[in-house]
Amino acid sequence: MKHILVVYASHYGATRRYAACIAKALHARLAEARDAAPLLAGADVVVWGGGLYAGGVNGAKLLAKNAEKLRGKRLIFFTCGLADPEEPADLPALQQTAQRALPAALRENAAVFHLRGAMDYAALSPLHRLMMGMMKRMIERKGDAQTGEDRQFLDTYGKKVDFVDLSAAGPLAALLRAAAGDAAGEIR
């Protein structure tokens, strides 16, 4: 059986929830991105998850910084955000964001997944609240040119929403089980 390391970068907890469930189901080690560098050498398969924030992926800089340690390893990369990956109109933007976040040297060995997250505006830092307010104004100015993702953003703005569906990580876990030669538990 191969050694699996599940790494996550999460500001408010949704990405951490997915990562913890994946690690538990696969009997894998769980680490925050900031603590992962010394653990990468011992891993055969690395799951790296990051929350989507302002068109970027949380933890992407650390991923790039450690790209050499990940070269040749099986990488499963997932993003976590409000956009619905089941909505065909949202998928291109999610894929583009993931491609920008993944270092070129790692793209060939990486499988990419997108999962829905959560948002509690009351829990946002003042900086994130300010950024979300600016984003809202930019989207409102688009008028009829708003995308489905834009409309989802406006629908959830200022609210507490939770779209986390741990079972949505099932395909990711199935790929991991196959890569690790393991028949570990289900994601729940």
Rank of each mutant, 00 (worst) to 15 (best):
V46C: 09
G170H: 03
N66W: 04
K69R: 14
L63D: 02
L52G: 00
K160E: 14
L127I: 11
H3P: 13
R188L: 05
S167Y: 01
N66G: 13
T79V: 10
F113S: 09
D84M: 07
A64H: 14
A178H: 12
H114R: 05
D182V: 06
P171G: 13
W48G: 03
A98S: 11
G143F: 01
K160D: 08
D44N: 12
C21M: 12
M138T: 02
C80P: 13
R177I: 10
E86G: 14
A180P: 04
L26P: 02
P38I: 13
S10P: 12
K136M: 03
K73H: 02
E186V: 11
L115S: 07
G158R: 12
A145E: 11
G117H: 02
C21H: 15
R151L: 15
L94Y: 05
F153H: 00
V45S: 01
A64L: 07
L124G: 06
A54L: 12
R116N: 05
G72Q: 01
E108F: 02
P126Q: 10
R71F: 08
M132F: 09
L26S: 14
Q95H: 09
K159Y: 05
H128D: 09
T79I: 06
T79K: 07
R116T: 04
I139M: 00
G133V: 03
L62E: 07
E68S: 15
A173L: 00
N66K: 14
R116G: 02
G55M: 05
G185N: 08
R71G: 07
R16W: 11
G49E: 05
M135R: 05
A173H: 02
V161L: 15
L5A: 01
V47D: 05
P171A: 11
L63I: 09
L30T: 03
R29F: 06
R116H: 03
H27K: 11
K61I: 08
L127K: 10
V112E: 01
L176V: 08
Y12C: 03
R188K: 10
A54H: 00
A183Q: 13
M119W: 05
A14I: 05
E108D: 14
D150T: 08
W48Y: 14
L70Y: 05
R151G: 14
D162T: 07
R29H: 09
C80L: 10
V7N: 03
A178T: 15
R71Q: 12
A31I: 09
A98E: 11
L30V: 04
R151D: 09
Y121F: 15
L176Y: 04
R107D: 07
A23F: 04
G55L: 04
G143C: 07
